[in-house]
Design a protein around this nucleic acid. Structure first.
Length: 338
DNA sequence: TTGTGTTTTATTGCCTCC
DNA sequence: GGAGGCAATAAAACACAA
């Protein structure tokens, strides 16, 4: 145990905790019978707040001159002589510093949170406190500052955590959304593959060359190739066969339906996806699936001396609210040809 | 008034530095 | 080894609701 503790503890009387039971007994042995009144009254008085907060005195043995820390809120001017006497005849108690003392210490702390010995003594003089009290106050003040700083750091970290967590949750949601989209598109691809089988088997048999020719001839004989009537049966068939291609979430073309979805691939969400995700083989298969062979739709055109239809005129499968399908392009072609 | 929670003052024990 | 800092802690002082 350092000597300073004993000396200062001796001044403390009954005050103090921190497992200081042994200390208390020592202190009482040294000082409990000290005639304090005369000692305090004889003080010359620190400059700050009166003379009684601490004085120097010798212990009962007269060997050591001790700085007496006195719990100091009982100022004579505040309480009068009666209270003063009463105060010194009652067990000593821990006293809080005055507000102005604390204010002074706070200012000093703001300037520098560490205490040089000279500064400590000077502050003690100015405040009418014992240097040790000033040291303790600074020590406790540093502890409080540290605690507050930890709280601030915690808040900063906590806010940062919350922000990151929110970002993370959003990313998770987005991930799930994209995942669903991938599943949806995968399903679509599977359906398309199924439809490919349909085209090559039963569906193709439904429409004979004769029926196509007959229907076409009828249309021509009527002198009108109506976009709304031509090959209506075929549209229905194809629509039913490719209904799954019509994705309500996919943007529709607005170019009159004369563009091939497959050939364009520039504005369709679905096909942007397909183009980036599909291999060339897969894309070829998809073309086969979606595009009915020309010989099937218009068998006579296949070998005709008619310029190849523009690529964007052959698609039938993608809906357009205004103008329907690429088939109408064929109708126009037929009309021209005939 | 009293019980309870918080703040402040002070002590103790350990550690580092010189 | 003494001085001083710090963490942990005690206990008084204080605030406040019931």
């Amino acid at each position: 145990m350092a000597g300073r503790r004993l000396i200062y503890g001796g001044a403390g009387g009954v005050a103090g905790g921190g497992g200081g039971s042994n200390m208390s007994s020592i202190l009482l042995q040294n000082h409990s019978a000290e005639p304090l009144d005369s000692l305090f009254k004889s003080g010359s008085g620190p400059s700050f707040l009166g003379s009684r907060s601490m004085v120097s005195f010798e212990d009962v043995t007269g060997r050591n001159k001790l700085e007496r820390s006195f719990f100091r809120s009982y100022d004579q001017e505040d309480n009068g002589d009666d209270d003063y006497d009463e105060y010194f005849h009652q067990p000593e108690k821990k006293r809080r510093l005055k507000a102005d003392q604390v204010q002074f210490l706070e200012k000093s702390f703001e300037e520098e949170d560490k205490l040089e010995p000279e500064r400590k003594v000077q502050l003690a003089k100015d405040l009418g406190l014992q240097p040790r009290q000033v040291a303790i106050w600074f020590q406790n003040r540093r502890a409080r500052w540290k605690t507050k700083q930890l709280e601030k750091d915690y808040d900063v970290l906590h806010n940062s955590y919350k922000s990151l967590k929110a970002d993370y949750d959003n990313l998770l949601k987005e991930k799930e959304k994209l995942k669903d989209e991938v599943l949806h598109l995968t399903d679509e691809l599977l359906v398309k593959e199924k439809e490919k089988g349909s085209w090559e088997s039963s569906d193709t048999e439904k429409l004979s060359e004769a029926s196509v020719q007959e229907h076409t001839a009828d249309l021509v004989s009527e002198g009108e190739v109506s976009k709304n009537s031509t090959l209506e049966f075929k549209q229905e068939d194809i629509n039913s066969a490719n209904s799954d291609l019509i994705d309500s979430e996919s943007p529709h073309y607005d170019d009159g339906g004369h563009s091939s979805l497959l050939e364009r691939g520039d504005s369709s969400y679905v096909f942007e996806h397909d183009q980036s995700d599909l291999s060339q083989d897969e894309e070829d298969n998809l073309r086969k699936c979606l595009l009915p062979p020309l010989s099937y739709v218009f068998p006579k055109l296949e070998d005709a001396d008619y310029p190849d239809p523009p690529a964007n005129s052959c698609y039938f499968g993608f809906p357009d609210d205004e103008n329907a399908f690429g088939f109408w392009s064929y109708s126009d072609m037929i009309a021209t040809y005939l």
